[in-house]
Amino acid sequence: MGGDRTIRETLRGWAFLAPLAVFILGFVFVPVAGTFIDSLHREVTFLPRAFIGLGNYRSLSSDPWFWQSLRFTVLFVLVSVPLELVLGMAFALLLHRPSRARGALRACVLLPWAVPAAVSGRVFELVCNFQYGPANYIAERLGLTVGPVNWLGSAWGAFFALVAGDTWKTAPFVAVLFLAGLSAIPGDLYRQAAVDRAGPLQRFTRITLPLLRPVVVVALLFRTIDALRVFDLVFVLTRGGPGGSTTSLSLYGYDAFAGGDVGYGSAVSVVLFLVAFALSAAYVRIGRFGRGLS
């Protein structure tokens, strides 16, 4: 009787899972496997398809633009993600304090996250504009520069403009995650800490950070994967320029697809997938998911 019920429950569980499983199979596994298979072929629109094993990967390894785009992408992740996490944490701590303006403030901070990346790319293009961008106006007013500066005109300038654009847009997202985490921490802990005469810094490092760790890891995971795949912002703001210095891996793969070489573009996508997968696995391990708090 009881066993019967468990089987029924199990079956029912599977039935509920089935649509999701079909969805993931159809929309995640099949395309990923297809991309991998394509990457092992000479899959070019204007040539007959042929199996070439690791040929595309061998070409990648001797392609200076592949290494350039990998270098750019990794550097972009290393600079923008920590910045977003620190800023997001600062926002979250500020917004967590009870205040009459809290609702309005939260809405303000969240606004950039609601803006599509392509739009924020255009906004930053305008900000950096040589002729009439406010960046030049402000820098000159503050006495930092003499005459207009072409901000997007150097490799470093373009890189930091992209980092700024990405941080502006996604720090609010991180802040929302952290806010949710903060509100789950019981207030008693802070009251006890106050009794023990713990200062604000101590309370932050001994209570807030440890209890927030799972949320931090989730934010880190989301932001890293997203930053690795950066495409829209680059496509709109710099299109990989100047001189190809800000070509991201996604943009490089897109270039290959657009030029008719599906196999080569697939190989770039597979590399990107592997990097993202390895980093995610590392984070999940570091984050020690499934071991509970404390």
Partner: peptide
């Protein structure tokens, strides 16, 4: 030619 020729 303006300095932003090669960017914009």
């Amino acid at each position: 030619s303006p300095p932003n020729t090669y960017t914009d």
